[in-house]
Write a protein that binds this DNA or RNA. Structure first.
Length: 507
RNA sequence: CGGAGUGUAGCGCAGUCUGGUAGCGCACUACGUUCGGGACGUAGGUGUCGGAGGUUCAAAUCCUCUCACUCCGACCA
């Protein structure tokens, strides 16, 4: 009898997917829950990922003509009230500041004092406060377009939170732009969605479907919400980024007006677009396995770790010198436009423990170097993406030279694996029975991983969305751009339809 | 906000029914033997038993009230 394979993460994905997710985060040391309800502490390995995401995205924003600015954390309540749908969408999840001072009571407890005349809302998103500023900055068509991005934290008081996927406070970027014409604003909306899709696929190695949200799933106050949707390893969908065409709704609410070249006053057309630390959750659930995280090399805070193998003191300095030399050579190597990030792991732990800690963190490559290797002028290397780490002995110079190629291979392999997984679990469904079958777990008590993306016809009727949400917890993730027009009938209602849309359970 | 559950050492838990000096595993510290894929031995440190009241000679344990967190729903990036 073969023994069950030993995994670093318990339970495995198949055994208990939500618990596996939590355990991966713990084992890879990305983040942990904080003393503050629903808020997380992002630890160095997790924050390193976020920093690399920021760098890549920020460069793309700048390439597309945007500049960064910063707006206040607090929004006067009256600002949020300006756009009716927007208020309704966010009112239930706002943190509200009502006082500006603490005073000690007779028991020495601090109690709020100094009530504010107008409560301040901790921003759940910044359309309104940025709109207020835009209205001052825009006078003429010559002031447009206004292309601003901000990196910030926002707060949404969610009832139920999960690390990275939904936290009360999260980090994100929000782009806000104003344009003279509807066409130009639409172009911006689509362009930024492309930027997100490119980032998701080429940096996160996560294939995404670009599309438009249905009215039901639209951003509160938007005319149209575009999104990228990814499939996680439990086959559920995760919205990884959104780009909103806001029409003139917010311009009217915030009085963003300009004189056009005819001398006529017009409202501007605005957009907003954002991605958040939720992307780290997407990364985890796209790539990690039962031994922990797997980080795409282009976002890895560290690419290579060197693990010195030292027995006793007599050859320690020799081994360390050799390791330092390899580290220097690696650091002089260019990968993806900058130098390789390399760690010399000098922790006083056993070799196996150290290697496993890197496995769990998802480090792309590590190499053990001991007296035996030094005798051959070689290293004993391992890579995260292969079965039992695909260990191989490689002459030192050859190893150093091969690292960028191997990283590219890992990056590419991760993308292909995720893409194949999605393809395997995406099906065209044409009957209501098949549809209900597809989205129903065989085991009701402890639902197994099931379902996926269903490409099915939908006539545009919101009642269908309502019905499948209630019956199956399934929603329309998007009306995909790349799906060809085709005559058909709605899989649920039987009404005529012109296009298949993506149905899935979602995070 | 509805339903369920859990709060005991840094982490994971037992002990609670049946009240009687606070336990186990991992981790941690020291020493030794080990070490090329998650070592072992010996010795050691670690607690307001979530909080506040109450019952009792005696409370982690029984009673009342609270607070927090987790999970499942509803809602949502």
């Amino acid at each position: 009898m073969a023994k069950a394979p030993k995994t670093a993460i318990k339970p495995t994905r198949v055994e208990d997917y939500p618990e596996w997710y939590q355990q991966v985060i713990k084992a890879s040391d990305l983040a942990e829950n904080s003393p503050v309800r629903g808020c997380m502490v992002i630890k160095p390995w997790g924050y390193g990922l976020w920093e690399n995401m920021q760098h890549a995205l920020d460069a793309k924003f700048k390439e597309t003509g945007h500049v960064n600015a910063y707006f206040p954390l607090f929004i006067p309540k009256s600002f949020l009230e300006k756009e009716a749908e927007h208020v309704e969408g966010f009112a239930k999840e706002c943190a509200v500041v009502t006082h500006h001072r603490l005073e000690a009571d007779e028991n020495g407890k601090l109690v709020p004092a100094g009530e504010l005349e107008e409560p301040l809302i901790v921003r759940p998103t910044s359309e309104t406060i940025i709109g207020a500023m835009f209205s001052k900055w825009v006078q003429s068509y010559r002031d447009l377009p206004l292309l601003i991005n901000q990196w910030a934290n926002v707060v949404r008081w969610e009832m139920r939170t999960r690390l990275f996927l939904r936290t009360a406070e999260f980090l994100w970027q929000e782009g806000h732009t104003a344009h003279a014409t509807e066409e130009e604003a639409w172009e911006e909306t689509r362009k930024m969605l492309d930027v997100y899709a490119d980032f998701a696929e080429n940096y996160m190695a996560m294939p995404v479907i670009k599309g438009e949200k249905t009215a039901l799933e639209r951003f509160p106050g938007a005319v149209s919400t575009l999104c990228i949707e990814a499939m996680m390893q439990d086959r559920k969908a995760l919205q990884a980024g959104t780009s909103h065409f806001l029409g003139r709704n917010f311009a009217k609410a915030s009085e963003i007006k300009f004189l056009n070249d005819q001398g006529t006053e017009e409202y501007a057309w605005t957009t907003s677009w954002g991605v958040s630390t939720r992307l780290i959750g997407a990364l985890i659930m796209s790539h990690s396995d039962d031994n922990g995280l797997m980080v795409p090399p282009r976002l890895a805070p560290t690419h290579v770790a060197i693990l010195p193998v030292i027995h006793g003191d007599e050859r320690k300095s020799e081994v360390m010198e050799y390791c330092e030399k390899v580290v220097r050579e690696l650091r002089d190597t260019t990968y993806n436009g900058s130098s390789l990030q390399v760690t010399l792991d000098t922790r006083e732990a056993r070799g196996g423990d150290k290697a496993w800690s890197w496995v769990k963190k998802g480090l792309p490559i590590w190499a053990e170097i001991g007296p035996r290797d030094i005798a051959k002028d070689a290293v004993f290397a391992a890579r995260r993406d292969k079965e039992r780490w695909g260990k191989w002995s490689s002459p030192r110079a050859e190893f150093v030279a091969s690292v960028p190629r191997i990283l590219d291979e890992i990056q590419q392999g991760m993308f292909e694996r995720a893409r194949d997984f999605r393809a395997q679990h995406t099906v065209e469904i044409n009957s209501k029975d098949d549809f209900y079958d597809f989205f129903t777990a065989k085991s009701r008590k402890k639902p197994e991983i099931h379902g996926g993306f269903a490409l099915s016809h939908w006539s545009g009727d919101p009642a269908v969305e309502e019905q499948i949400r209630n019956d199956l917890s399934v929603s329309i993730r998007c009306i995909p751009f790349d799906q060809p027009d085709e005559e058909g009938t709605c899989v649920i209602s039987g009404k005529p339809s012109k296009k298949r849309v993506v149905f899935a359970k979602a995070y």
